[in-house]
Measured scan of single mutants.
Amino acid sequence: GSVVKEKKEKALIEVRPYVEYYNELKALVSKISSSVNDLEEAIVVLREEEKKASEPFKTDIRILLDFLES
Results as ranks from 00 to 15, higher is better:
K51T: 08
F57C: 02
N23Y: 13
T59W: 12
S30M: 13
S35W: 07
L25W: 02
I13Q: 14
N23H: 12
L12V: 02
Y22N: 03
E14R: 06
V29L: 08
A27R: 04
A53R: 04
P17S: 04
R47P: 00
E49N: 05
R16M: 09
K58W: 02
E50D: 02
K7R: 11
E49H: 09
V29I: 10
R62D: 03
K51S: 12
V19G: 02
L46M: 04
S54C: 10
E55N: 09
E48C: 13
F57N: 01
S35D: 06
A42G: 08
S54M: 10
K8I: 15
V19W: 02
D66R: 11
S34C: 05
K58C: 06
S35C: 07
N37E: 09
F67D: 02
P17C: 07
L68M: 09
K52D: 06
E55D: 09
Y18C: 06
K52H: 10
S34R: 07
Y21I: 01
S70M: 11
E24C: 04
E20T: 15
L65V: 13
E41K: 04
E14L: 10
F57K: 02
F57P: 00
K8C: 15
R16S: 04
L64A: 02
V3A: 14
K26Q: 11
F57L: 04
I32N: 02
S30P: 01
V44I: 11
A42Q: 10
A27Y: 07
R47T: 08
R47V: 08
L68C: 15
K58M: 04
T59K: 14
S34G: 09
I13E: 15
E50Y: 12
V4H: 13
N37Q: 13
I43L: 12
E55G: 12
D66G: 10
A53Q: 08
R16D: 00
E48M: 14
P56G: 10
V29Y: 10
L25F: 01
S34H: 07
A11K: 02
L25A: 01
G1W: 01
K52M: 11
F57M: 02
L25S: 00
E41C: 06
S33C: 15
K5A: 14
V36M: 04
K51P: 02
R47C: 10
S35R: 11
L46R: 00
K51D: 13
T59V: 06
K7Y: 15
E9L: 10
E20V: 15
S34N: 13
L28G: 01
E48T: 09
V19P: 01
V45C: 14
L12K: 01
R16K: 12
E14G: 07
K5W: 15
K7F: 15
Y22P: 02
K31R: 13
Y22G: 02
G1E: 12
E14V: 08
R62W: 08
L64R: 00
K31P: 01
F67A: 15
A11N: 05
K5N: 14
E40N: 12
L39R: 03
D60S: 05
V45M: 14
E6I: 09
S2A: 13
L25V: 02
L64Y: 15
V15W: 02
V3W: 07
K7G: 04
K5G: 10
V3Y: 06
K52N: 12
L28T: 03
V3M: 08
V3D: 13
V4C: 15
P17T: 03
V3F: 08
E49R: 03
K5D: 14
K58A: 12
N37S: 11
S35T: 11
V19F: 01
P17N: 05
K5P: 06
V44G: 11
E50G: 09
Y21Q: 09
E9Q: 05
K52V: 07
E69C: 11
G1F: 01
L12P: 05
L46I: 05
E41H: 06
N37I: 05
E41M: 07
K10Q: 15
Y21D: 12
E40T: 09
F57I: 03
T59Y: 11
G1C: 15
L65F: 02
E20W: 12
L39N: 05
Y18Q: 03
L68N: 00
D60E: 01
E9M: 07
E20H: 15
L12Y: 02
A53N: 11
E41P: 04
V29G: 00
E40V: 11
A27H: 07
I13N: 10
E48K: 10
F67Q: 06
K10H: 14
L65S: 04
D38A: 06
R47E: 09
S33A: 12
A11E: 05
E49A: 04
S35M: 14
L64I: 04
L46Y: 03
V4K: 04
I61D: 00
E40K: 04
V36H: 06
L65C: 14
V44P: 10
K52G: 06
S33E: 09
V36C: 06
L68Q: 00
A42C: 15
K51E: 13
Y18T: 04
A11P: 03
R62P: 00
R62T: 10
Y18A: 03
N37C: 08
T59R: 15
K51M: 12
F67W: 11
K5C: 15
S33V: 14
E40L: 07
V4W: 15
P17H: 04
K5S: 12
V19Q: 01
S34T: 09
R62A: 10
I32K: 01
A42K: 02
I61Q: 00
S70W: 10
L39K: 03
V45H: 12
L28N: 00
P56F: 04
V19N: 01
S30A: 12
N37Y: 07
S54A: 10
I32S: 02
K31N: 07
A11D: 05
I43Q: 04
V45W: 09
V19I: 06
I13S: 12
E49M: 03
E20C: 15
Y18M: 05
A11Q: 03
L39V: 09
V15P: 01
K58T: 04
R16A: 10
E14Q: 11
K26G: 03
E69G: 12
K26A: 14
V45E: 11
E69D: 10
V29F: 14
F67P: 00
E14C: 15
A53L: 03
I61F: 01
E14F: 09
E6Y: 03
S35N: 10
S33G: 05
T59H: 13
D60T: 03
R16L: 06
L65E: 00
K31H: 13
S34A: 14
V15L: 08
S34L: 08
V4N: 09
Y21V: 02
S70N: 13
G1I: 13
A27W: 07
I13T: 12
E9C: 15
E9A: 03
V15K: 01
L12W: 04
I13C: 14
K58P: 01
N37R: 10
E55W: 10
F57A: 01
I61V: 06
L28V: 04
V29E: 01
P56S: 07
P56E: 08
K10Y: 11
S2H: 11
F57Y: 08
K26L: 09
T59M: 09
E48V: 13
D60A: 05
A42Y: 13
D66P: 01
L28H: 00
D60P: 03
S33K: 03
R62N: 08
G1T: 13
R62F: 05
E24R: 07
K52C: 09
E14Y: 08
V45F: 09
S54Q: 11
V45D: 09
I63Q: 02
L68R: 01
S35Q: 13
K10T: 12
L25Q: 00
G1S: 13
V45A: 14
P17I: 07
